[in-house]
Every structure is written in structure tokens, then in C-alpha cells.
């Protein structure tokens, strides 16, 4: 994944806000990158741009060599469906559907048959330890269980890239640890993880940390606290300083 000179500005109550300022960076396949920074520094903007959900004011965003925002919105939706998984801080589960049905949604969007959807969704919920909560609606689950349903939903279509926005923001330490372990596991399976977080302990799990400050990506090297084995991609190419 790559950003080339990407800026994003929008007007808020008549004032021009720069969410991202001329950012250029590259994230390699299989990396686990944490994006940290103060509130309003542009972390979520960065994540949504990688997910094809927010077009830049200038610059280009690449995924597997394709310029995302040169594609139509529906083509970007197809890429999200097939290659990208989102994990949200507030889980964003569909409230009127059961855990099983929530996990079935990406499979339905991918055109899988209902029986196939049910089988795979059941397996995924078993994998995240919710095999006995298939018919529970989100409101009937604890926050930790909701986040695990969200994680199972992310895995439904076996995405190459997982974009997680404060995945542990609403969780107690034990549940946070469970979620981080799941993300570690996904990364070990070869998936690229980009995680926005305020939590230093969560950031420490990443192979690389990107610092954002007022929309600028600050120069940053490999994460010294990373437990990543040597030889794995674990570097940053950051050219985001304001000119």
C-alpha cells in the first residue's frame, strides 16, 4: 500500500481543516503497522484513505499497484469486499442481525450461497470463541464479544489487508489483549495490518509505528519494542514532512 503526496482538506464551520498534509509512505505486504498520534492528527483519515472510503484532495493512493481513487466508487467497493477488512472502535455491527448474520454479510456481498455463508460464518465465530453466541444480537453480547464478532466478520472474505481503527479503544485490558492476539495471529498468517491506536501497549505489538502530527507523517524507524522475528518486513519509508 502506498500514499504519494496525499493531502486531505475539508471545511468545518467555515474553517479549512487539513487532515493529512502531503503524506508519502509505503506499507509492504505482511507488515503490522501502528498509526499513533493525538486526536485530530489524521490517523483515521489515513486509514479510510487506504480503505478506499475517503478520496484525497490531492495525491494518489495505491493498493497492489492500482490507484484506488482512479477507480469508480463501485470498483472500490469491490476491492473492499475482496481484499480489505475493517475493524471499528465501535464495532459497527448491524444491530438487528444476529452474530451469525452479521458475519454472513460480507459473504452475502461476495455472492456466496446462503448455506455456504452459514457454514463459514459459524466456523469463524467458533474460531473467535463465540460458537455458543451465534443467535445473539449485538445488544445481547458484551463489548468484547461484539468486537470478536466484528473480527470474525473481517475474516469472512479472507482479506489481504486489515484496517483497524482503535480496535481496543472500548475494551477492558483482558479483552484488548484477546483482540491484539487475534490481530497478531492474522498478521502471522501473512495479512497486512494497519492499526490506528492511542494505546501504547497496542502500538508496541506492531512492527512499525507511524506518528502523525497535525496531518503530517513524522519520520519514524522500526519499532524497537516489536516482538517481530528478524527478517520480517519491519521498516518505514516516511517522506511526509511539510515542505
Amino acid at each position: 500500500m502506498k500514499l504519494e503526496g496525499v493531502s486531505k482538506s475539508y471545511k468545518h464551520r467555515g474553517r479549512l481543516v487539513t487532515a493529512l498534509d502531503n503524506a508519502t509512505l509505503e506499507i509492504h505486504r505482511g507488515e503490522f503497522v501502528a498509526v499513533v498520534g493525538a486526536s485530530g492528527s489524521g490517523k483515521s483519515t489515513l486509514l479510510l484513505m487506504f480503505g478506499g472510503m475517503l478520496s484525497p484532495s490531492s495525491g494518489r493512493v495505491f493498493l497492489n499497484g492500482h490507484s484506488l481513487y482512479d477507480l469508480s466508487p463501485n470498483q472500490r467497493a469491490e476491492i473492499r469486499r475482496d481484499k480489505i477488512g475493517f475493524v471499528f472502535q465501535t464495532f459497527n455491527l448491524i444491530p438487528y442481525l444476529t452474530a451469525l448474520e452479521n458475519v454472513q454479510i460480507p459473504l452475502y456481498l461476495a455472492g456466496r450461497a446462503p448455506a455456504d455463508q452459514r457454514e463459514r460464518a459459524t466456523n469463524l465465530l467458533h474460531r473467535v470463541g463465540l460458537g455458543d453466541r451465534l443467535d445473539h444480537k449485538p445488544a445481547e453480547l458484551s463489548v468484547g464479544q461484539q468486537q470478536r464478532v466484528a473480527l470474525a466478520r473481517v475474516l469472512a472474505n479472507d482479506p489481504e489487508v486489515v484496517l483497524a481503527d482503535e480496535p481496543t479503544g472500548n475494551l477492558d485490558p483482558d479483552t484488548s489483549e484477546q483482540i491484539l492476539r487475534q490481530l497478531d495471529e492474522l498478521n502471522r498468517e501473512g495479512r497486512t495490518i494497519v492499526m490506528v491506536t492511542h494505546d501504547p501497549r497496542a502500538a508496541a505489538r506492531a512492527g512499525r509505528i507511524l506518528h502523525l502530527n497535525a496531518g503530517r507523517v513524522l519520520p519514524q524507524g522500526p519499532n524497537p519494542d516489536s516482538s517481530r522475528p528478524a527478517g520480517e518486513p519491519n521498516y518505514a519509508v516516511v517522506e511526509g514532512a511539510r515542505r
Binding site: 480503505g51 472510503m53 466508487p73 463501485n74 467497493a77 469491490e78 476491492i79 473492499r80 469486499r81 475482496d82 475493517f86 471499528f88 459497527n92 455491527l93 448491524i94 444491530p95 454479510i105 460480507p106 456481498l109 461476495a110 466478520r153 472474505n157
Partner: peptide, 13 residues
């Protein structure tokens, strides 16, 4: 929010 979530999951317009 639900529409946004569906779009994030890959739902087209």
C-alpha cells in the same frame, strides 16, 4: 452508520 458499515464491507451503491 449502518449504510457506512455496509459500504465498508463492500456494498455498492
Amino acid at each position: 452508520r449502518e449504510i457506512g458499515s455496509l459500504m465498508a464491507l463492500g456494498a455498492g451503491s
